[in-house]
Amino acid sequence: MTIHKGRGFACINYPIGMNLGGDPSQALVHSTPDGKFMVALSSIDLGQGMKSVTRQIASETLGVPVEDVYVDTADSDTGPHCMGSFASRGTHRVGNAVIRAAAEARKQMMEAAAEELEVNATDLDTDGAGNIHVKGAPSKSITIAETAIAAQFKQGRTLSGRGIFLIPPSEADPETGDMTPVTCFAHAALVVDLEVDDETGEVTVNHINSAYEVGRALNPKLVEQQLIGGAWMGVSHALYETTEPNYPARDHGPEDFNTYLQPGPGQIVPHDIAVLERPAEDAPYGGKGPGEMCANPVLPAVANAIYNAVGVRCDYLPITPEKVLRGIREQGGARPQAVRA
């Protein structure tokens, strides 16, 4: 029995969203009577941080404290239309819609405050702490709560905004097939170090090093956490997850959560991440979001590392011990590729 070390590399250019039939998302923003703001979306937060990041974006655009913004993604029947939380599109598409809705609500908020302060709305600014003041004269100010109360009970106006962000459909040129299916890409490169046991076919991932370019990281801790969790999913997909039996009888195959194999807390792979921030031009505050890309490059990197370790090229997933062992036997033993320092 020998343990063979291997290293594999993969890189990825990942499209944000898709626009073959047009790719829209809408957002609606309105204030409550006490000057808090509700952001209504149909874009679901499935753990990736959609609520957190759209809350930050709305707060930044409105000029109000983040604590005063609530995001409601509860119901696609009653909320504004969204294509959905998929294709790594959330931050980019929904974030842009939120900026537009929040900007319209901010305009109304400033007009209501201007009426109360008897000044021109263009002379006003927000301090980000819940107040609106005359530029250069911070003492001449009104709170956002007072503004909302005046708007609703005295002026008879809403502080609200509508936003839609649409990437229009891209038609393919019938002659050449030329088209622009995506407007924005994120990028990553990833290196996996692992060991392959040539007696059992077992693969142990020891370390992941990665570099991700996701535009501006609007919430750096969330980005980092999404990348760590996503790489774990990638390892799981690459090596473990299958409903097919590893052995001839179906009896031994996973049928439910009890036996569906995933790495547990005892198989955490140390992962060092470098996040490169290159704010994208058409993205909300430059943020593209990691999305699905956080899992994808792990799979080819693991496959390449296994090839590097024992010379077995597995071209379908997951790479179970059985596939590795069959590969080793077919070629008459492990054939480590270039030795690594």
């Binding site: 753990g47 995933q262 547990g264 807390p265 955490i268």
Partner: peptide
């Protein structure tokens, strides 16, 4: 790790929980 080995998490990769 042993104490939470009966609890599945599909998002975090466990590391931040530990």
């Amino acid at each position: 790790i042993e104490a939470i080995s009966g609890n599945l998490c599909r998002c975090t990769g466990y590391e931040p929980i530990v």
